[in-house]
Design a protein around this nucleic acid. Sequence first.
DNA 1: CTCGATGCAAAGTATTTGCACCTAT
DNA 2: ATAGGTGCAAATACTTTGCATCGAG
Lengths: 142, 142
Amino acid sequence: MTAKDISRFRDYLKERGFKWTPQREKILKEALILEGHFEADELVYRLRRKGIRVSKATVYRTLPLLVKAGFIKEVIHGEKHLHYEHVRGDSRHDHLICLRCGKIIEFEDEAMREIQERICRERNFRPEKVLVEIYGYCEGCR
Amino acid sequence: MTAKDISRFRDYLKERGFKWTPQREKILKEALILEGHFEADELVYRLRRKGIRVSKATVYRTLPLLVKAGFIKEVIHGEKHLHYEHVRGDSRHDHLICLRCGKIIEFEDEAMREIQERICRERNFRPEKVLVEIYGYCEGCR
DNA sequence: CTCGATGCAAAGTATTTGCACCTAT
DNA sequence: ATAGGTGCAAATACTTTGCATCGAG
């Protein structure tokens, strides 16, 4: 799986004249391994803990590439910094975010998706990215 | 209308031992006058253009107060900085945001609201704030 | 008079950029 | 060889904070 991802990324880069570098490979691998959400900084620390030294600048420069290549996507905008998450083939999900314990509950809802499409269609708007985040209190915290 | 808002803010402050100051009055007034969305910085400039000098720090300290008091709310999280908008009694609307021209189109959809409620109910989640933002290209830019 | 509020400048955060050096192609 | 990539440190952009001073109650 990762091997396939790696060659996909390599191809993606080659196609547009970008280069395949060890740093980019490390960043991609780590981003794919990570479960759930992560931030740029976190990725740097994780790599560093594994003894892999990649500069923050490079991570900040690589994450947008991974987004464009479709490996990860930006999520959770309510915080001061961006969060990313691994794009899994299966689901287009959104998030419930607990304001007390920070837990993030994912959900997927077909009906909501249809409504979003209708709203865009009615306004001649071509959606590129939809952000749905519900902040509140989870079962244990309410 | 503004007079009523002002006394409501004054009461809100008094109730919790905060003080009513000219700066807070100016900031409240300007935030209410503003149509559409604004950022902290913008508010400072607008006041300054009117010859009203309020420090950035004070604005940054006052906006959260206005949010808690229910006069304005935070919107548009996709950008690096927070945007606020005047809470109008009538509508609970969301936004379509054009990635090219930056235009913000508001929409309101009852069906979507109901689905959100159902999603929360199903998960025993008590929603406090719902964020729906659709990024894409508007009629003129697609 | 007292405690919260203000203004300023300094300190934080998160992210971006300039530049000299490096390396994949 | 050469364009693109990397690391570093400095720069940026937005926001917060410490502190001396001010002023509302």
